[in-house]
Nucleic acid binder design. Sequence first.
DNA 1: ATATAATAGATGTATATATGAGCAAGGAGG
DNA 2: CCTCCTTGCTCATATATACATCTATTATAT
Lengths: 236, 236
Amino acid sequence: MLKYEAIARELREDIQQGKYTPGEQLALEKEMCQQYGVSRITIKRAVDELVKQGLVVKRRGSGTFVKSLKDEDVKELSMANQFSGFAATFKGRKVASKILKFEIIHPTAEVAAKLQLAVDDFVYDIIRVRLLDDQPIVVEYTQMPIQLITGLKRQTLEKSIYSYIEEDLGYKIQSAHRTVRAVMPTPEEREELQIEGVLPLLEVTQVAFLDDGRPFEYSIAHHRGDCSNFRSVSIR
Amino acid sequence: MLKYEAIARELREDIQQGKYTPGEQLALEKEMCQQYGVSRITIKRAVDELVKQGLVVKRRGSGTFVKSLKDEDVKELSMANQFSGFAATFKGRKVASKILKFEIIHPTAEVAAKLQLAVDDFVYDIIRVRLLDDQPIVVEYTQMPIQLITGLKRQTLEKSIYSYIEEDLGYKIQSAHRTVRAVMPTPEEREELQIEGVLPLLEVTQVAFLDDGRPFEYSIAHHRGDCSNFRSVSIR
DNA sequence: ATATAATAGATGTATATATGAGCAAGGAGG
DNA sequence: CCTCCTTGCTCATATATACATCTATTATAT
């Protein structure tokens, strides 16, 4: 474990456990150096991590101060700017998948461009309903190049494609580019998500990349608006 | 302008102008040191900025590589993880506001908690329709503590509250915590946003903070789903 | 008493340097 | 010819140091 990560986690846990009142000043960077036995730059990286997570603010010339947050917010914020697949996001809870489609097709021109492919290349075309504690909460439309994500089996789709990519294929997943919109469900989605009445869906369109920069996934996820939501922290 | 920012911008412009083919390797950090006449740590900060913006990936032992992106994506990505008010977001275009409500009330318990107030404190209660090029695209429900954001006038609401806070009150805005959901418009919203037929809205709930850590705004924005959308880059 | 100026203290930026870890190419040995 | 290992290159992490910039307090002058 990296030093600055360990210190950031320790500080975060202190804040989560309410050891600071809202607005209270943290120890000075110089003091933390002694406290943790590391250099000031390492302390700075740790505290900057907390800023990125939205827990504290730094004021040049004054010090670092805990934001005025409700307790429940603090836990969720640490996760806000990370990203992982469905299975990892709800790790520890009962997750399952219902496969509606699993074929190999040619991509459209738009998808081919996003995945850096030619239109006569092939991609997996997957539609899955993801269930959390037996409740359907999202329909995922996924396309992946067959050259890159080789040997995908129906069995893998039941669980987690991401862990297949990382553990079996040995790739590393680096990042995802997302856009979010609001849409209405199709009749099929209404049925699969067991929607009664009028309920909109949150559409998350995502292109995901390996750590060598190659895009490996184009996916559109339609979330039940009343179940899941997305959080983020933005810094000026 | 900071050195690492200037270098990051220069590199970003090179990428935007297509000086690199998708997947192409950037100059080595050591080479950039000579090229720009700065230390390696400064180069590293600049390149890390591009990683955060989603334009490149770094591979230890190999170098830095340009992601495979469509041209149009590159421009928008630089902005993705920033945040600004409505007026600043659409700077250069015609923006206007229609004020539906401007009152002073007691906050609910939930809002009071988020804004670190007591329920017998007072907050501004503002409802505005924001127009872009004369088209209504979002309804904003905003609450701000009157102790903090003092002297707010109807005239200010027509323009930009954020620039009033920064320029007139002299505060600095630091960050915002957001959650995003999908919702259906109310009959009023249907009218104000000139919605015909069935169209869902993107709901962005936001708590915004000053640079001293105090929350100064609780707002809920309902965006026409077909006009605006939100982008973000997530790193593992 | 008020306004201004000096000063101490805190974080920000940048450099130089050392060590660690992952990657790829090239050489030794079978 | 193929495999394994060494080696050098590249980025990652961490330290020490210097100077810049901003804040808040203290001291001084009016």
